[in-house]
Structures are given as structure tokens and as C-alpha cells.
């Protein structure tokens, strides 16, 4: 019993220690942003590996999610004789929820894990130590540009996901199931609000971008510098950021809509 309590206490303490370290690191990363401004090429290179390389999976998943929504939505709506509102259903589910959330989950799996693995590997091969010994702050030189790249890429990826999804829904709904093309778009435009829906969706994806990249970067930087430690950290990045994205999504939805 006492052992169990001790174990509980120890894991609680280590949890709060990690949380504290994560916040200190976050402050440090943000502190490095001003020094990044004259060196945007560093950020551009990270946007390539974080954003451009995630593009394919985002495009494909967005298209298929949109197509599935079109198919499922049609089957439900046709029972009520209101298949004209298919566009509304597809676009609202994408813009409000699926776009930001699924894109963030995919982003965590594709870019987040890669970030953790890369930084963890740099740590285990002493590259970060070497930078420190060269009087270069590895947090500013390595972590800040990656963080900024995630912060910039995530909303763009989510927007691409939603846009492609709306087109996918149109392909299925209009092309395959015979919903009127004009009704698909005009009903959508009537019901989707720029501020309530799209703007809030973008805010969601920005929050997710910050959180996922933060977790990924922290896990990499905090990883035990062995191959086992790095692989564990990579797993943790995907699991933790997925959970946090889903939890935050609930909170944000409750606040916004």
C-alpha cells in the first residue's frame, strides 16, 4: 500500500517536473523568435520538412474524408428529402471539426514524430551538445525554427484539408449521386459563416499547430539520448499530441460555437 502511494507520488512529481520543463522550454523557444526574423531561410527550410512533406497525406486524406462525408451525408439526408443541404453538412463538418482535428492528428503522426525523432537523434549523437560547445544555443538554432514552421504550416494544412474535402464531397454528391451543383454550393454559402465557422476553424488549427509542435519539439529535446529513449519519445509525441488535440478540440468547441 505504502509502496503504491510512493509510486503514485513519484510519478505525479515527475509529471509536474516534465510539465515545468516543457513550459521553460516553450518560453525559451518563444524568446528565440526575434533572432529568427533576420534568418527566415532557416524557417523556410523547416516549413519544407514539416509542411510540404505532410502535404501529400493531407491532400489524400482530405479528399477521401470529403468523399465519405458526401456519401454518408447523402444517405442520411435523402431520407428527409433534403439532400440539397449536402453541401452544408460536408462543409460545416470539415471547416468546424474534421479539417482542424484530422489535419492535426495526421500532422502529429507525420511531422510531429519526425520532429521528435530528428531532435532526439541530434541529442543522442551529441549534435546539440556540440552546438552548445560552439557557443550556439541549440534551442534557438534548432528548436525555434521548427516550432515556427509548425505554427505556420498547421493552419495552411488544415485549410487545404477542408478545401480538398469540400471538393471531394462535391465529387461524390454532385458527380456520383446527382445532387444539384448549384444547390450544393449555394446552400453551403447560405449556411457557412465566415467568422463563426471558418475563422474559428482557423483559430482551432493554429492552437493545434502550436500544441502539437510544442509537444514534438519538447519530447525530442527531453528524450533520453539512446535509441530506445528516442523511439519512446516518438511514440509519446504521437499519443500525447493526439490526446491533447482531441481534448482541446472539445474545450475550444465549447467556447466558440
Amino acid at each position: 500500500m505504502l509502496n503504491y502511494l510512493q509510486h503514485l507520488g513519484a510519478s505525479g512529481l515527475s509529471f509536474f517536473q516534465r510539465l515545468g520543463r516543457a513550459h521553460i522550454l516553450f518560453a525559451h523557444i518563444l524568446g528565440g523568435i526575434p533572432s529568427m526574423l533576420p534568418r527566415l531561410s532557416l524557417v523556410v527550410h523547416q516549413i519544407y520538412s514539416v509542411g510540404v512533406l505532410s502535404l501529400l497525406i493531407i491532400l489524400v486524406s482530405g479528399l477521401f474524408v470529403g468523399m465519405v462525408l458526401g456519401l454518408q451525408g447523402y444517405n442520411i439526408l435523402v431520407d428527409f428529402g433534403s439532400e440539397e443541404t449536402l453541401g452544408v453538412m460536408v462543409s460545416l463538418s470539415l471547416v468546424r471539426e474534421l479539417g482542424p482535428v484530422v489535419a492535426a492528428l495526421l500532422f502529429a503522426g507525420r511531422a510531429g514524430s519526425a520532429l521528435t525523432a530528428e531532435i532526439g537523434l541530434m541529442k543522442s549523437t551529441e549534435q546539440l551538445s556540440a552546438m552548445e560547445m560552439m557557443a550556439i544555443d541549440p534551442i534557438r538554432r534548432v528548436l525555434t525554427p521548427r516550432f515556427l514552421a509548425g505554427f505556420i504550416s498547421m493552419p495552411l494544412l488544415a485549410a487545404i484539408f477542408s478545401a480538398v474535402g469540400v471538393i471531394g464531397g462535391q465529387l461524390v454528391g454532385v458527380g456520383l449521386l446527382g445532387v444539384d451543383d448549384g444547390a450544393y454550393w449555394s446552400q453551403m454559402q447560405d449556411s457557412v459563416d465566415l467568422y463563426d465557422d471558418i475563422y474559428n476553424g482557423v483559430i482551432k488549427s493554429i492552437v493545434f499547430g502550436v500544441v502539437v509542435t510544442w509537444i514534438a519539439v519538447f519530447e525530442g529535446y527531453d528524450a533520453i539520448p539512446t535509441s530506445e529513449g528516442v523511439s519512446r519519445a516518438t511514440t509519446r509525441t504521437v499519443v500525447h499530441s493526439s490526446l491533447v488535440v482531441l481534448g482541446l478540440d472539445f474545450i475550444l468547441t465549447a467556447i466558440m460555437f
Binding site: I47, Y48, G51, V52, L55, S91, V95, I152, S153, P155, L156, L157, A159, I160, S162, A163, V164, V166, W185, M188, Q189, D190, V192, D193, L194, D197, I198, V202
Partner: peptide
């Protein structure tokens, strides 16, 4: 990539919303 992202946002704003 950035152009595509902005285009997607633009499309959402112009074509999907009101």
C-alpha cells in the same frame, strides 16, 4: 505550399462561406 494554403483559405472564404 504557402500559396496553396492561402488559396485554400481564400476558397473557403469566398466559395464556401458567405
Amino acid at each position: 505550399f504557402i500559396a496553396a494554403g492561402l488559396a485554400a483559405l481564400f476558397m473557403l472564404a469566398m466559395k464556401v462561406s458567405n
